[in-house]
Design a protein around this nucleic acid. Structure first.
Lengths: 211, 211
DNA sequence: GCCTGTGAATCCATTCACAGCT
DNA sequence: AGCTGTGAATGGATTCACAGGC
């Protein structure tokens, strides 16, 4: 039975965490795993795993555990990783280019179909993935034509808001923002923050103030 | 008065969030900002800002607000961004190289002092920042000699755990892991997870299940 | 009057303990 | 017997409402 009412946001985030080792287990041919086993490799507590999974359905078998391939398929279905997402990147500096080459994106169903930059010197360059960098003025047309759903912002902080506005007005429904600024968007559009200097700063705090 | 007892982890994470717009405000010459103003640009509620900041001290002025430069300096002190951290990157593929060029790192005091890779074909290559890529077998020696405190893992998932072990046994105290696997480490070492396919998967979920 | 700092209250998430199925 | 699914209890974090100082 699927409960649609109220699922905690952290539970959703952990789903992606559970999927990683499951992929490895599936590749190794492991058939079942217990909540305890999964919890250990993910660094969480067993009841946490059970509760998280139970929010979305009854995936386990009592007395046995979770069937690996089955559970993985369920998680992919929940996170919509079993479908292809069409995405574009705005800002093709070092980070944008690295993201364009990232193998993990493609393997998880995120397909890069366009790349944009404002610099005339970068426009027209062909990426190793064969895509040509286009000028940001073509975002609107490209998003419509290529049916792009997700926009990734890899620009400098000063250009991030403008990139976001262009993407949203072109019809993108989700944005992953790597620039170290908070972009302001209409509520119809989902945003995730990918800025990793934040990670470093958290790390630094924990190093300076050990538990 | 500084309360050392119990500060919520989310509060610490938000500190980095608050710092971003403060930098912009400081550059623009804005003198004070209220909790309401800061809350709005950060997408949180005003009492949240006040409570978060009050965990670390009395930075505000009643009836006025927070003095921008003063607050920014305090946050930097808390997050230890006012000091230099020496770091290295393991895995110099596209992501590793993009991180090496990242301007935001250096500006926030994270100084890259070594870069490693396992591939003999990559060893010896000079990065645009002038550093030479060294073989992973030299991690131990380099970490000691260069007094490296933070290790960034940008390897493929299969090599991530080994990279982590090498870094920790060499004496690194914090790790930022971009590989899509959970690395297992002794508790003396802090880890942050930077894998951004997780962000995309969260985004996809929220797109499929709008609030 | 205005805006911060803070105990109290609310809300949310995690953990526990055990019922229920295989 | 073993391990999941879940209401109940615990533990944290956010929000509120107002006291305190400019």
């Amino acid at each position: 039975m699927i409960k649609t009412y109220k699922i905690p946001a952290p539970a959703i985030e952990r789903l992606a965490l559970y999927a990683r080792p499951l992929e490895v287990l599936a590749a190794k041919g492991t058939l079942v795993i217990s909540s305890e086993g999964l919890a250990k490799v993910c660094g969480v507590h067993p009841p946490q795993v059970r509760k998280d999974l139970a929010y979305f359905g009854d995936f386990g078998v009592r007395g046995v555990g979770y069937r690996v391939t089955e559970l993985l398929a369920e998680i992919k279905r929940i996170l919509w990783t079993d479908r292809e997402w069409r995405m574009c990147i705005v800002g093709m500096g070092n980070l944008g280019r690295a993201l364009a080459e990232n193998e993990g994106f493609r393997r998880r169903g995120y397909r890069l179909v366009a790349a944009f930059d404002e610099h005339p010197s970068r426009v027209g360059i062909q990426l190793p993935c064969k895509l040509l960098i286009e000028h940001t003025s073509r975002i609107r047309e490209a998003v419509e034509r290529l049916e792009i759903e997700i926009g990734v912002i890899a620009t400098s902080p000063v250009h991030a808001q403008r990139a976001a506005d262009l993407l949203v007005s072109a019809g993108v429904v989700g944005i992953l923002n790597f620039a170290p600024v908070q972009v302001r968007l209409p509520s119809c559009c989902a945003v995730e923050h990918g800025d990793f200097t934040v990670n470093l700063e958290n790390l630094a705090y924990h190093l300076s103030n050990p538990v």
